[in-house]
Amino acid sequence: MIEIKNLTKSFGDLLVWRDVSLTIQDGETTAIIGRSGCGKSVLLKHLNALMYPDEGKILIDGKSVFDLSYTELRKVRQRFGILFQGGALFDSISTFENVAFPLRYFTDQSEEEISHNVNEALTMVNLKDSGSKSTAELSGGMRKRVGLARAIILKPDYLLYDEPTSGLDPRTSGEINELIVNLADTMDITSVVITHDMHSVLSISDKVAFLDEQKLSWFGKTDDMKHSDNKNLMDFITASEYQINKQTA
């Protein structure tokens, strides 16, 4: 369980958000939505202390992440997999080696086991034959999928996705959404997904957190979202639906 308590973050004079509190239960998938620049990525990076807040704390299974020593923090971080917004692949090594990277450093698996596990992960993200490619040869969508394969390779307890479907065609987006749901079910992973895409939200998430006006404007079950009296949230949904209709029209 991840409990975010009264988190406030600013960069110099720029307040990103203030007093954000929410709880992520084990096994749930939580979507974080909001306009571009509202601080979704920043919030995600607080969960495993890649960034530190001005105030507030985050408890993971009751332990405060920001108070851990670096050694303890590194252990906690290994329970997380992250898919970064641009994939964040290491560009000095091949696709296969990117996915194998955590295995090489954090396990003592044999070359055969590594090869087997990497191929399994690449198959899961539909990139079975791309292992030998250099990362420069991958398209944006492929980079994301390789990033995802790398994020799940150590079978994490928590998976954080930073815009897994943005910039992808509807079909690939759909596949990734399916993958997120599958991973959550089969590997029993607790997921936090940042997205702009209402389609994704509706098809994958149990709960939704809406960041707006420098605070957590709405938090609740996905099913309750449509009946909310939060005007900005309704506008956000309507704008997305308008987009969706325009695309399909």
């Binding site: 890649l50 590194r74 971080r77 992250i82 970064f84 641009g86 290491f90 560009d91 150590l154």
Partner: peptide, 18 residues
């Protein structure tokens, strides 16, 4: 610098790397 702005350093840290 490139590793920093393309979040590769974050990715390393996130894996539990120093």
């Amino acid at each position: 610098g490139t590793m920093r702005v393309s979040e590769q350093i974050d990715a390393l840290e996130a894996m539990g790397f120093n």
